[in-house]
Nucleic acid binder design. Structure first.
Lengths: 234, 234
DNA sequence: ACAAAAGTGTTCCGTTTACACCCATGC
DNA sequence: GCATGGGTGTAAACGGAACACTTTTGT
């Protein structure tokens, strides 16, 4: 079949905004760009979409290359396509944000990609419009997490409620009432209590919980109300 | 500056899902495709992104070409990019949904594009993956409208609360308690009551309202609760 | 007078919030 | 024993849902 004539073809890339949580703060994984120009400048992890790939496929591939992880929570959130956003050549960027358990991240890949975790407020300048992309991703993360239980994806299998609260407090840069937070969370029935306590961060110790997977999957679209007046944060 | 070598360039198109409301039902504007192959099959309004255009620019241009309207509510909602979605040649589709006041739509453009409004449950088969795109757009419309006051964009400047309720009922294919609906709506302070009644649809007549523009813009991101258990509808 | 639709008032009930208080533990 | 953080109890405030009832007006 013949092609469409007289139209411009352009490059399409996928960029991944990779969020992690180290137990205290939200972090973002950046790499040093391997291509000229701007080689060795900080950049989001990204790559061109290949002939046989959907954008989603590309995002999955890129994420695995960079972190060693598969089956990661990932969400397409916006296309960036200003004609001059990449000075080399016109390139669309299809941006995905990903949430990973930072402890599963394979450090050895570090060498290859010169990847590093950065605190959100200590990020270096990024190439192209990547800083804008990150800004949008942070906004999208807050938005989505206010409504749906996605932040669990940043935690290990077992976690305590205080850990989870610290995570939410990191994302929204505010403090939540610990007592109400834990009760709200338990009332979602998303959590299963384990017979084990984390004794590192307090004398009394906080019980570990894990996700009730089936409940989690079935209720993923239902709205949470863990954040009072969530719109305040957008 | 030299180009990126060894990468595939591809076509990128913008497709617009154009919603309208005729006072009774939600409708979607479709056109007969002008290109071969599949010429004269029903399709979303779309077009290739030009060299100087961002995807957003292209969506605005295409929408104006098709409807004669500028300054329309439009939202980028998803990229469709399976390698084989267009059998002619690989094409990314960046999908936008648009909400227009159907009465402002210029019918004379009809001839040129063979555009027609369709009820959502009376749509013809569409080319490529356009039916899937429409499905996602409907979902996105319900999602967004459950949270934010976007449906006003489908109505004329002046409207009555019963009209608005019919609109919400059309979008969610259910019925809302008229008494609670009107009180909830008024409590948002988004509306300004006019000294004029619509006497066509009832003896008593319903007051016209208009949007309080500044309040609307300032509170656009705040969450509405007009829809009981919104997650039921996704 | 009556019908039909708009709109108000009222009650009930679950949720959220704020905060006092109790619990478990290591030192 | 006591400091520390985890966790429960509780009362007041708020907001949504349901529905009886009032209002307006054309016929």
């Amino acid at each position: 079949m013949s092609k469409y004539s007289g139209q411009t073809r352009l490059l399409a890339a996928t960029d991944c905004i990779i969020f992690g949580f180290d137990g205290t703060s939200i972090k973002l994984l950046l790499i040093k760009r391997g291509l000229n120009p701007f080689k060795n400048k900080w950049s989001l992890m990204g790559g061109f979409i290949q002939t046989s790939e959907s954008p989603e496929d590309a995002a999955v591939r890129i994420l695995e290359e960079c972190t060693g992880l598969k089956d990661v929570y990932m969400e397409q959130f916006m296309v960036f396509g200003k004609p001059d956003r990449d000075p080399v050549e016109r390139t669309l960027s299809i941006a995905y944000f990903a949430l990973i358990d930072i402890h599963k991240y394979e450090n050895q890949l570090n060498d290859k990609y010169h990847a590093e975790w950065f605190l959100l407020n200590e990020m270096p300048d990024l190439i192209f419009d990547h800083s804008e992309i990150v800004k949008q991703a942070k906004k999208q993360l807050r938005y989505k997490a206010a409504l749906h239980p996605i932040l669990f994806e940043l935690l290990p299998e077992k976690f305590t409620i205080p850990q989870l609260r610290t995570l939410y407090e990191g994302v929204y840069e505010t403090e939540f009432d610990d007592r109400n937070f834990s009760r709200k969370l338990l009332s979602t029935n998303l959590l299963v209590k384990l017979n084990e306590k984390d004794k590192l961060s307090s004398r009394k110790g906080a019980f570990y919980y894990k996700l009730d997977k089936s409940h989690y999957e079935n209720n993923f679209e239902s709205f949470l109300h863990l954040i009072p007046t969530p719109e305040k944060f957008f």
